[in-house]
Amino acid sequence: MASQDENYLTSHPKPGSTFVDCSTVYPTTTEENARKAQQASVYYLASPVFGRPDLAAAKKLVVVTAGTPDAKPKVKPYQEAMGRAVLDVGERPQLANVAKLTGNFCISSIIEMLGEAMTLADKNGLDRKHLVAIIDELFPSPIIHSYVTQMAADRFQPTPENPGFHVRLALKDLGHILRLGQKSGAPLPVAEIMMGHLKDQAAAGREEYDWAAIALSVRKAAGIKASEE
């Protein structure tokens, strides 16, 4: 795999080398990088991933890839070394970033749903542990379990063991998602709501919190005071 230095594609890379971009960026950025790679006679693959560093170490990432067909067999062993699945979405590199943003939209929508559901439970006296049990039975998923238990424990600040996905990074990704929706004529009302809650958390000084902290905004709107306040 080539270095991800942003100047790599314009610094006379070795022809025939392979550049693998794992960034979550707007699709047109990927298109531009692919064009530069072609001009430099470099193979180019977009390969964003779903998952945090701990999942990479455990070989549990979900890897999305798209780009030059000839480069894919060379890169796949590296992708498989950190991922439980490698999903090939075609030859157009930008489609990998469309896929990543679409997946992140789904995750953000789930987080919003969980935050609202837990607030509804709190307001009506249902113990959070019972809601967690219900969610686990209805939606058996490691991602959903992780976020619902995090919210139930009011565990929003990052730790060395669980650095989380920071609010500031989520703002960047939601911005890309909303921009893509607007450009393609696809209304995304849930993303708009999530963006508002992320901005609220950033304004409260929680830019480095995990994005599950949007639950605090949902609770605030319902008149529930955050435990840290």
Score class of each variant (00 low, 15 high):
D136G: 02
K76A: 04
P73H: 00
G125D: 04
A46S: 11
L169N: 02
G175V: 06
G115K: 10
D173I: 09
T30K: 04
V64A: 08
S108Q: 10
A117H: 04
D200G: 06
L120F: 11
Q39Y: 08
A186F: 06
I177M: 09
G164P: 08
T102N: 09
R35I: 08
K172M: 10
E208D: 08
S47K: 05
M113C: 13
P163T: 01
R206W: 05
K225F: 03
S146D: 09
A203R: 01
Y44W: 06
G90L: 15
V49H: 11
T28V: 06
S109H: 05
P187S: 11
R35M: 13
I111L: 13
T68Y: 00
S47V: 13
A204D: 05
D127W: 03
I177P: 03
G83V: 03
F165D: 00
V20L: 12
A58G: 01
N33A: 12
Y26M: 02
E161D: 13
T102S: 15
Y8H: 08
S184P: 00
K220H: 15
G164H: 01
E116W: 06
K225E: 12
K123P: 03
H145D: 14
R219G: 09
T28E: 13
F156L: 14
A221F: 02
I177N: 05
K100E: 15
L180Q: 06
R179G: 03
F50D: 15
V42G: 02
S109W: 11
E80M: 00
E228M: 14
I214S: 08
Q94T: 06
G51A: 15
P69I: 08
M113S: 07
Q38A: 15
R84W: 01
Q4M: 09
P93E: 03
D54E: 12
T159H: 04
V64C: 09
A213G: 03
Q4F: 04
A186K: 05
I111T: 09
K199M: 11
P15D: 05
E228P: 02
A226C: 10
I224W: 14
D54K: 03
L114Y: 01
V62P: 00
A85P: 01
D200F: 13
P163R: 00
R155C: 12
F105S: 15
A71I: 01
G115F: 13
T29V: 11
G205L: 03
H12G: 07
T28S: 12
E208N: 05
S23D: 10
H130K: 08
Y78Q: 02
G181C: 07
C106P: 00
K183P: 00
D70C: 01
P158R: 02
F165E: 00
V63H: 06
H166C: 00
A221D: 13
L120R: 03
E207T: 04
I177A: 06
L114I: 08
M194C: 14
G181I: 01
I214W: 00
Q157P: 00
S47P: 06
V86M: 03
I143L: 15
A170S: 14
I144S: 11
V49S: 12
G185L: 07
V132N: 04
P69M: 06
A71D: 02
L171D: 02
S3T: 09
V148M: 13
G223C: 10
L188Q: 05
A213F: 03
F50G: 15
D70N: 07
